[in-house]
Amino acid sequence: MTEAMKRRLFGVAALAVAGAALFYVGMSDMGDDLVYYWTPSELIAAAEAKEATVRLGGMVKPGTLDWDRDAQQARFTITDGDHEVPVHCTGNPPQMFREGIGAVVEGKLGTDGVFRTDRVMVKHSNEYEAPDGHPPEVQTTLVDE
């Protein structure tokens, strides 16, 4: 094999590796572990989760939102239908936050069973709709990716 051929072969092989790496990052589902959040049932089931920072996702139970805007804190309950977890949030939730919306909170579950967080993320769907437009069809998933 000539030197030039070797060089070309190396170039092609390197590009293949680079392409495979990008493809792997884009296509594999390894991000799922990281985007993952626990539902209240799973959080309650996982005893070892008392100290580590975890994410909890679910619906803000209607009628439980107690929002003290001056003190910049809110209390509400996250539910998945079966179980619910009371959440104490310091810092204001985003504006679109409301009862009945999907939300994910990041923080720690205290020994008293209250989940403390300073990060509330509202999961509104990615649809952009006119107000009197068609009803949204794909609002079933809480977190799309």
Binding site: A21, L22, Y24, V25, S28, M30, G31, D33, L34, Y36, W38, A46, E48, A49, E51, A52, T53, V54, R55
Partner: peptide, 17 residues
């Protein structure tokens, strides 16, 4: 810190990529 949600492998994979 400990890894209750099992995220270490994914970060390692990203680093590998």
């Amino acid at each position: 810190e400990g890894d209750p949600m099992g995220q270490g492998d994914s970060w390692l994979a990203l680093l590998g990529a």
